[in-house]
Amino acid sequence: MLELDEKFFGRFGVEYTPNQIIFCEFEPGYEFYFIQKGKVKITKIINDREKTIDVLTAGDVFGEMAILEEEPRSASAIAVDNVRVLKFHRDNFDTLLQGNPQLAYKLLLIFSKRIYDAKRRLMILLLEEPAVKVMDVLIMLAEQNPQYDFEGEVTLYTTAAQVASWAGMAEADAQKELTHLTRVDKIDLYEDRIVVKNIRDFQRVITSRRKNLYS
């Protein structure tokens, strides 16, 4: 990547200052970006609040949906600190690929991961009971960290608000389910993290619910 960066910065490099918009939700978009330096947050305005969906750092790509699609941006990208990016117009994509196949490989990795994340989220959303959805969100978060030992306690750095957003439910409802799980001693709930006592328990519940879903 470094080789690519140095060679291309003169032509494609752009810099942003903290809190500056790189692109805005619903704006037509024809470019995609590689972060060279700094942090970029991906946000959406939901119910008149700015929600941060993701924070990206050097080496990450964003705006990549514009490469192959005609849709307006589905989220905003905002510089968190001083940000340096390479900005490519999709018309240059083929040329860029020819010259930089490693970029293509990187995009394949990104797409693979995003497809899985979207599928996994859909699996959660398709569950019916809120309690079960919340459990499956916790499983998903645990899965994202391959070094976790599922036999022991698992600490997830997340909040009720984030769980709610994954589960597609109101924060108060997610909070209610999490409080219940605390009461029955399945999890410990903290301001910034959730400790799951036995994630295997949750997995058993979800597996059986999922079987019933289709039968």
Partner: peptide, 20 residues
Amino acid sequence: ILRNVNVVRKMLRVFSNQLR
């Protein structure tokens, strides 16, 4: 795949469709 960018392009297109 670094030797065959066309394959990557095809895969990207398939992936992008799935994602959408």
